[in-house]
Computed example of a mutant assay.
Amino acid sequence: MLELAGAPTGPVDVPETVLAALADEGVVNPELTAVWQNSVGGLTFAVRPERGAGEPHLFVKWNPLSSGESLAAEADRLGWLAGIHPVPQIVALAATHGDEALITHALPGVSAVDPRWQADPNTALRGLGEGLRKLHELPVDDCPFDWGVRHRMITDGIPDGAVPEAPPIDKLVVCHGDPCAPNTLLDTSGAFLAHVDTARVGAADRWADLAVMTLSFEWNYKNYDERVFWDAYGVAPDAERIAYYRALWNAGE
Results as ranks from 00 to 15, higher is better:
Asp170Ser: 14
Pro108Thr: 01
Pro49Cys: 06
Pro115Gln: 01
His136Trp: 09
Ala162Glu: 09
Met1Lys: 11
Leu132Asp: 02
Pro182Gly: 00
Lys171Glu: 11
Gly234Ile: 07
Asn250Gln: 12
Ala232Glu: 03
Pro167His: 01
Val28Glu: 00
Asp114Pro: 10
Ala203His: 03
Ala106Lys: 07
Asp146Glu: 13
Gly83Tyr: 01
Arg77Asn: 05
Trp230Arg: 08
Val212Trp: 04
Trp230Leu: 06
Pro108Met: 00
Pro167Ala: 03
Asp160Gly: 15
Leu32His: 10
Thr96Ile: 13
Ala53Glu: 09
Val196Pro: 01
Pro11Val: 02
Phe192Arg: 02
Ile90Asp: 00
Asp24Val: 06
His176Met: 01
Gly177Arg: 02
Val201Ser: 02
Tyr224Leu: 12
Pro56His: 12
Thr17Trp: 01
Phe229Thr: 14
Leu78Thr: 06
Ala7Glu: 05
Ala162Ile: 06
Gly177Thr: 02
Pro167Gln: 03
Asn63Thr: 14
Pro64Gln: 13
Ala162Asn: 09
Val235Thr: 13
Leu128Tyr: 04
Asp120Phe: 07
Gly202Ser: 04
Ser67Phe: 09
Val235Phe: 07
Val149Asp: 10
Val14Ile: 14
Val149Asn: 12
Leu135Gly: 09
Trp207Thr: 11
Leu81Val: 10
Leu102Asp: 05
Gly234Met: 06
Val174Gly: 02
Leu135Ala: 13
Ala194Arg: 01
Ile103Met: 06
Pro179Glu: 00
Pro56Phe: 15
Gly109Trp: 07
Asp231Gly: 10
Gly234Asn: 03
Ile84Gln: 09
Leu58Ala: 11
Val14Tyr: 02
Val196Lys: 01
Ile158Leu: 11
Trp219Pro: 05
Gly6Ser: 04
Leu135Ser: 10
Pro139Leu: 08
Leu93Glu: 00
Thr17Tyr: 02
Leu2Ile: 04
Ala236Trp: 03
Ile169Gly: 08
Ile90Trp: 00
Asn220Ser: 15
Thr188Tyr: 00
Ile169Ser: 11
Gly109Phe: 07
Leu186Val: 08
Arg150Lys: 13
Ser66Thr: 15
Ala162His: 10
Arg133Glu: 05
Asp99Leu: 11
